[in-house]
Design a protein around this nucleic acid. Structure first.
Lengths: 228, 228
DNA sequence: TTTAGATTCAAACGTACATTTCAAACAGGT
DNA sequence: ACCTGTTTGAAATGTACGTTTGAATCTAAA
C-alpha cells in the first residue's frame, strides 16, 4: 500500500511526520530514511541537503494553501460592506482543512510544522514567508483593518502576531493537549474541533477594546515599575 | 564586574541566554562553557548533566515566581465578589516583571525559556510543571471559572492553553517582533509594553462568548467536512 | 607547613550527525 | 542485447556532541 510510491514521496512523508513530532533540528536524516525505508544517501541525492528537504516539506502544503487563501481574501475584499472579524477568520477553516487532501492529517502536520519553523529556525521561516507570500498577508491585514476600524495599526500588528502564536503553539502541542482533553473531559478532539474552538477566541481577542491609560491604572496598580 | 561570581552562577547566566535564544537541544555545553569562560567539564561537575542544568536554569525563576503567584491567587480568592477576568490576569504582571530582579532581562528570559520548554522537550516540562505547581494552577483555573461562569470546563481548558500559547510564542519571538514594531511604527517596545498589550487581548479572548451550533453554520458554511 | 577535600583543567572516549564517494542496480530508447 | 543516464547501495569522511577521566591546582583547617 505504501510501498509503490516514489522514493522522494516516501522521504517527504516520513520527514514531515518526524519533523512535526520532534522538530527540524532534532530529527536526523537517519530517522527519516529509516522510517521511509530508503537509503540514507537518497535524501541528499533527491533534495540536496536537509535544509532543502525542510523547505520541500513545507512547500508541499504552502503551494496548496496560500493561493487558496489568496482567492478567499480577494473574494472578501470585493464585498460591498466590510466583513466582520469573525467572517475574515472563518475563511481560514476550509483551506486549512483541505490540506487533509494533500496528505493524511495534513492540516495538523502543516500547522505543527509551521510552529516548529517559527521557533526552531529563528527568523528564516518568517523571512521566507513574507518574501513569498507577503502580498497575501497584506490582504489579510487590510481585511482585519476593515473589520476593526477602531484598532490602531500598531495594535493590529501585535494582535495578529499574538493570534499567530495562539494557533502555532496550540498545534505544536496539539497531541498532548488533545490527550489531556480526552482524559479529563471525555471529549473527542480532532483538528477541526480545535480550529472551530479557536475562531471565537481569536475573533474576540483581535477585536478587543483598546484600553485607555485611565483604564489601565484601575486594573494594574502602578504597573510594577518599582524603581522608575 | 562579571568576573567575581561563582562558576555555577556564570554557567547559569550563560546557559539561560543561549537556551532562550537557541533552544535547549540546539545549545551545546561547549557554547555555554565558552560564553561563561569556564571549563567544559565544570557543567557536569556542578550540575551533573545537561538535563539537570536545564532544570536549574528554570528553577531559579520558578522558585521566585510561583510562590508569588500563589499568594496573589489566594488574595483574589478571598475577595467578597468574584473578580473580573481582567483583574485575574492583571496579577501576573507584577510577579512576572519582578523576575527582572532575579537577573537582567529575567522576565523575557523566563518566558522565552518557558516557551522553549514546552516545544523542545515535549511533555517533560509540562509534567514537571503540573507535578510541582499543580496546586497554584488549580487556583488560577478556579479564579477564571468564577470570572467567566458561562464557560464550560472544557472550553476553559482550551482557552487557557490558547492563552499560554499566545504568551509563550510572543516571548519566544519577542526580539524579532519588537524590531519590526520599532521599524514600522516607531514604537519603543519593551517587555512590559508587550505584557500590557497582552492583557486586554487575553481578557477578551478568554471571556469570548461560546458560540452555539446555530451561530456556527452562519459564519462557517457547512464546516468543510466535504466527505462526512 | 602539611594535608585533605573541593575545584579546575586538558585530553580523551564513544556516539551520532550530515554529507560524500563510488560502485552496483536499474531504466528505457535504439 | 547494448548502451546512457538515473537511481540506489554500503561504506567512509570529518565534525560535533555529552560525558568521563585523572592529574593539576586551589582552599582552608590542623
Amino acid at each position: 500500500m505504501a510501498s509503490k510510491q516514489s522514493t522522494q514521496h516516501k522521504i517527504l512523508d516520513a520527514a514531515q511526520s518526524l519533523f512535526a513530532e520532534t522538530g527540524f533540528n532534532d530529527t536526523s536524516l537517519r530517522q527519516i530514511t529509516s522510517l521511509a525505508e530508503v537509503n540514507l544517501a537518497s535524501v541528499n541525492y533527491h533534495f540536496g541537503s536537509k535544509k532543502e528537504l525542510i523547505q520541500a516539506v513545507l512547500q508541499r502544503y504552502l503551494l496548496v494553501l496560500m493561493p487558496r487563501l489568496d482567492q478567499e481574501f480577494i473574494r472578501l475584499l470585493a464585498a460591498q460592506q466590510p466583513n466582520s472579524i469573525s467572517q475574515v477568520l472563518s475563511v481560514f477553516v476550509k483551506p486549512l482543512l483541505e490540506l487533509n487532501k494533500v496528505h493524511q492529517n495534513g492540516t495538523r502536520m502543516f500547522l505543527q510544522l509551521l510552529g516548529r519553523g517559527y521557533t526552531d529556525v529563528q527568523g528564516h521561516l518568517r523571512w521566507f514567508f513574507n518574501h513569498h507570500y507577503g502580498a497575501v498577508l497584506d490582504k489579510l491585514v487590510l481585511l482585519v483593518q476593515q473589520a476593526c476600524p477602531a484598532l490602531p495599526p500598531s495594535e493590529l500588528f501585535w494582535r495578529l502576531h499574538f493570534s499567530l502564536g495562539t494557533v502555532v503553539f496550540t498545534m505544536a502541542s496539539n497531541e498532548a493537549l488533545a490527550e489531556i482533553a480526552e482524559a479529563d473531559f471525555n471529549e473527542n478532539v480532532d483538528i477541526e474541533g480545535v480550529i472551530l474552538r479557536l475562531l471565537p477566541y481569536l475573533s474576540a481577542a483581535i477585536a478587543a477594546p483598546v484600553p485607555t491609560i485611565a483604564q489601565f491604572s484601575q486594573t494594574v496598580p502602578v504597573a510594577a515599575g518599582e524603581g522608575r
